[in-house]
Design a protein around this nucleic acid. Structure first.
Length: 290
DNA sequence: GTCCAGGTTTTTA
DNA sequence: TAAAAACATGGA
């Protein structure tokens, strides 16, 4: 990987195993959108970014200083992790996992802000990705700090902890409003310290997160994987349950090893884009059509 | 009108 | 203890 400055932009070249589209559109983050010109624009925490992948091996970070690239985006996109190595190891474990890795080999696990990941996945429950993005956008618009170049940061827990359900009504997030408020209160008060979960034992980290109302096993795993980069965390949603039953009969999560969470992301994306693999899913469609 | 969406909590048997 | 039902909202 080679990094250079180009006017007010940062150019990265000689990149492998990276797809901007697949990484930003595989259901792990909710504040980036593809632009008409093919670039992606959005926010991570309190930073705005427009970035383009003009060819397979390069990226262009618009209006980005070397310092911001090095301290924010290099880590956010996980550019220094050995994905070829991990995918090679995962691909040997099971033929279906090999297929999933090969289907979208450029997916990376983002290093998102822990609080933002926790909130967005609280909002994700029994919800669809399009609507989650809408709710998150309204949350930021209503309560996030305005940013110099326009747009708003993801609101800190302190900005939400003193609100009530009525204040959240404009979000139209339904029953999840109380969950969001409880999370804001417990995190801002220090009752749940997200920072310490980075290196707490995984079982302890799970238990601490699940002390928040509306945070069960699945949302906790999402916070751990996407917010705290605990790469063995394995969110088990409806798609992953289908995939485990249909594609991995007899396989348990622990069989995927210390990078189970990375495997999960490839399997999730592969499954979501191949709904026909799942008999149950196709039966639903048939009933609807007939 | 019915079903479903990157689930969790509450209620019921 | 385990299985249903309820929980808001909006698109298909």
């Amino acid at each position: 990987m080679r990094v250079s400055i180009e006017q007010s932009n940062i150019r990265v070249e000689e990149l492998t195993d990276f797809s901007l589209r697949d990484t930003l559109d595989c259901g792990q983050c909710f504040r980036f959108d593809e632009q008409p010109d093919g670039s992606f624009a959005g926010f991570a925490g309190d930073k705005f970014l427009r970035v383009w992948q003009p060819e397979e091996t390069s990226l262009l970070f618009y209006d980005t200083t070397p310092k911001v690239f090095e301290t924010v985006w290099r880590r956010y996109f996980d550019l220094d992790f050995d994905y070829p190595g991990v995918k090679a190891a995962l691909s040997k474990l099971h033929p279906a996992l090999c297929d999933a890795c090969a289907f979208a080999p450029g997916i990376r696990i983002l290093n998102q802000d822990p609080w933002e990941a926790l909130c967005t996945f609280i909002l994700s429950q029994n919800n669809n990705i399009k609507r989650i993005k809408g709710i998150v956008a309204r949350l930021c618009e209503a309560f996030g700090e305005p940013l110099p170049g326009g747009g708003r940061a993801f609101p800190r827990p302190e900005a939400l902890s003193n609100l009530c359900k009525e204040d959240l009504a404009p979000l139209r997030c339904g029953f999840r409003d109380a969950y969001l408020l409880d999370a804001a209160q417990k995190v801002s008060s220090g009752e749940v310290s997200l920072q310490t979960l980075t290196d707490a034992p995984l079982e302890e980290a799970r238990a601490r997160l699940q002390a928040i109302r509306g945070v069960g096993p699945k949302v906790a795993e999402c916070a751990l994987l996407y917010g705290l980069h605990r790469l063995s965390a394995f969110p088990m949603d409806v798609w992953m349950k289908r995939a485990m039953e249909t594609l991995f009969p007899g396989v348990s999560v622990s069989d995927f090893g210390e990078y189970a969470g990375v495997a999960q992301q490839y399997i999730f994306h592969y499954s979501r884009l191949h709904p026909g693999l799942f008999p149950e899913k196709t039966e639903q469609k048939k009933r609807k059509a007939g």
